[in-house]
Amino acid sequence: MVAGDIAFLVLATVAVASAFGVVTFRNPIYSMLSLILNLLSLAFFFLTLESIFVATIQVLIYAGAVMVLFLFVVTMLTPKGGGISGPDRLRWQWTAGIGLAIILAGGLIISLLNGSIADGAKVAGMNGLSAAVARYGNAQAFGEALFHGFSFPFEVTGVLLVIAVLGAVVLSRRFAHE
């Protein structure tokens, strides 16, 4: 086994285990911390896929800023005692959910292993990413693609963020008659 394989297996184990933690921890704060671990392991996956810039924004924006906002709301809304609510009135839900999840995972993995994706994914040099990275560096290649080929989606993203900020302001405003 080479070092890349060991790194892949360790990262995959951490990612899947922390994802299970998100679903199974009863206290939402533990779920939250587990989700942050999952996002960090994905950032390391991105590093092994040779994209330093996206790994950096994954850590700074996602695991940093978005998750701090999330953790703030979780601690605000979780009552004392960890927010563990009363007895589960829908016990069959877990059985049904796990059964459906096994079916989904099995179907996805079978179709991945039987498909021709693995053969097709070796067509090199379509947009010359590695050449661009070698020429300009990682962040510059990202910016070049963002502002040349993808400038319209970039502008739409700006509009979307403005709408999201306005929506949050409208939703969290206290009205005078309350």
Partner: peptide, 29 residues
């Protein structure tokens, strides 16, 4: 993106990240 040697995957990840951030803001509100 890595195996097809194409930058499109990075762009999609960037857009998904932004949409996820917007979704978190509105959903939490």
């Amino acid at each position: 993106a890595h195996f097809l040697n194409s930058v499109d995957g990075w762009m999609f990840v960037f857009l998904v990240l932004t949409v996820a951030a917007a979704e978190v803001v509105v959903g939490l509100a």
